[in-house]
Amino acid sequence: MWGTGVLKGMAVTIKNFFDTYTSKNGIFTVEYPEKRLPEKERFRNFPILVYDEKPEELRCVACDICAKECPPKCITIVKAKDAQGKPLKQPEVFDIDFTVCMNCGICEETCPFDAIYMDHEFELAEYDRMDALIYKKERLSRPWTHFEKIRPTDAKEINERRAKDATKTAAAVKPAPPQASNQQT
């Protein structure tokens, strides 16, 4: 009634004004291109396909599970075929439409072969909105070391599980169906 509330409000704002000069936490913004916030390990943006050694030998076996699970259906997979026309366990085409993908991470969760993961890369702007935003297989593939670098905790866990599975499959005469083995984890 006497204008005290108004004056108190002004005191709050002037305090914030001077805090930006005196206090270390005064300015809250980060000057983006030069400075960056630390990346969270679980941060997910866009899928990548991982390979162990050579970029041609992706872990992906073109099973089409992720394409079927993807809610907006942004993944297109075509199985590779050898000279005789027999289907191979690798993709000929693996396209992800960036304009459709909604970064939900369901592909990563449902993949039984540890082949597709969400990357941390987020500066993905392009000048061409037609072709450049359809990510081909070559552009999606990253080495496993890259994944180990961005998500060390997850990578450790996955490595351990894969090593265990490998010994198990080596012991068994017939390889266990991958999906069943995955469900037990």
């Binding site: 914030n16 809250f28 916030l37 969270k40 390990e41 679980r42 941060f43 997910r44 909604m102 970064n103 939900c104 991470g105 369901i106 969400m118």
Partner: peptide, 25 residues
């Protein structure tokens, strides 16, 4: 902006948990 200053901290928490600030899933 004062509100966003505080909100941002919680969104960072969400990011560390779910991988995304707003589209948590």
């Amino acid at each position: 902006l004062y509100a966003f200053r505080e909100r941002e901290k919680i969104l960072d928490l969400f990011e560390s948990v779910a991988g995304s600030r707003m589209m948590c899933n």
